[in-house]
Design a protein around this nucleic acid. Sequence first.
DNA 1: TATCATTTGTGCCTGATTTTCAAAGATCGG
DNA 2: CCGATCTTTGAAAATCAGGCACAAATGATA
Lengths: 318, 318
Amino acid sequence: MDRATEMMIFVRCVEEGSFSAAARAMDMTPSAVSKQIRRLEDRLGARLFNRTTRRINLTDVGRDFYERCARIIAEIEEAEEVVSSLQDTVRGTLRVAATAAFARGEILPRINAFLERYPDLSLEMQLTDRMLDLVEQGIDVAVMLQEQVTDPSLVARKLANNRRIVVASPDYVARHGEPKTPEDLYRHNCLSLYNVSRFNDWEFEMPDGRRQVIHVQGNFRANTAGALYEACLVGVGLARLSAWMVAPRLRDGSLVELLPDYVQEVTAYYVLFPQGRHMSRKVRAFVDFLVEQFTPVPPWEQDESLMLRGYQRSGEPA
Amino acid sequence: MDRATEMMIFVRCVEEGSFSAAARAMDMTPSAVSKQIRRLEDRLGARLFNRTTRRINLTDVGRDFYERCARIIAEIEEAEEVVSSLQDTVRGTLRVAATAAFARGEILPRINAFLERYPDLSLEMQLTDRMLDLVEQGIDVAVMLQEQVTDPSLVARKLANNRRIVVASPDYVARHGEPKTPEDLYRHNCLSLYNVSRFNDWEFEMPDGRRQVIHVQGNFRANTAGALYEACLVGVGLARLSAWMVAPRLRDGSLVELLPDYVQEVTAYYVLFPQGRHMSRKVRAFVDFLVEQFTPVPPWEQDESLMLRGYQRSGEPA
DNA sequence: TATCATTTGTGCCTGATTTTCAAAGATCGG
DNA sequence: CCGATCTTTGAAAATCAGGCACAAATGATA
């Protein structure tokens, strides 16, 4: 049933003009070659070589078959070479799925460096906050929060801690005061998500190690963190937002961090890709790029004493 | 190392959209399919399918490889089909080698019936009296005398006895008398070949069963039997010639048979072709045609009481 | 919601296929 | 005429592929 090998041996015999020479060239024994040719002839029901005990000579049928075999083998080798080449070079199309806000805020601003590094690669970026089936959708790489990772056929590599910070605008703090303990939050207007109730349970680790969960409430709710961010900026209330999202505002003072001495729960962004023996170079290239960008210290945690302090307190590089 | 089977299974998996479905379609177990795909991926060093435990989906690389595989498999099947078709139909070129005189006298006059029977076949007829290497020369079929058959890789099928007859022209007999015993030949002018000395040892079987060899001599020698034939016709002397060559002249009386009661050595024409498991249809067709033409009774032995008598005495059909 | 059937993947084992080894038959070159 | 080389074959050995059983996971279904 081994068509291709038979054909390759046959072609080699034709080109070497001898079973023995072909056997030497292919590091086989002459008898193995002889038997392969015999099998091929038996399967085809036709004689390919006329033989004496000393010489072989192509039949007409054999000559025709040789032409075809030579072409077929070349195509097989080309096909396999193309696969290996596609595998070993970064080209083609890479399909990436990422959570919308994080991609807009942190990935896309840096994506040009990646594309310039690999001019033969094109990128398809799908922004979504829904969990999706990578295999079904033909997604090569996904970037999402830890809790969304369920698929066991995927490899998850940690990109960056997603530190949550409770913030408010200086204006709000001036008007309502600054909470000193988590319990104080009950007396503040806490902006919340109405579609992820879990997001509204703010967990703090007390200085003595105990954990405390505050179920916050307020008069403004939205369905995305981005909406809370905007509301917070204009002084509507307190919000618990990702560090990367509020870092610039903390720097320029348009938001201030509250309860800095209480460690909050830390999740992380992960990069996901299909596990398996054979990881394509383009996937590896993108994963490497992301890791390079966001580890050991993610960009929003850099350059600012305030940020560094917060970062070192709440997490360490992957 | 079984490229083609791997590729066929891969293609089937793509088309069925599932390992299990492909396995059912190809009458295999799913695990066998899974392993083949795994082997293929390992050899290529690339992932062809993304899988969950429940679904598979082509990768980009896999899609490219599939296109190529589908084409390659079609070509493999076409190549094998063409071989079988060439094998099973009588077409192409048939290369025949034959002894010159017999071919001109007995084969070529009948060859048109053969060519008309197989309109897709073309014939290359090489007339030669030298023994040649069928394999080396790419000859499909050879027709020659028994004694020229030495190659053990050939099958020899007997076509017709080659009865030898001593003849002379009536004119010569009238002038020199008719020999009554083999010994009488020593007193006659016997035409001989100068290149095949063996041909000049005329062997007779006496009525009592003893064998007698007469080494003939005369004043005319030539290098072909055809030349002796022409000389004999014009009354130069006695010649020992093949029955097929002199039969028309015996019928029309321009030659007469001498020593008819002495059985002479009988050789035979054989049709030779490469032995082996797989005999091509065109070779078989030609061999069948020759056998049909020359057996059980060769044409020159037919229709004439004289001929039949001589034939029945000196040989029997193969 | 819980059970069931289906799908992919893996480990082990058996059986078949293939290779190797040894030798024969045959031919070519010196 | 002898030695070297080439094809082929038969038997033994080794490799390889497939089957089975099972696990993990998922979608369908009651």
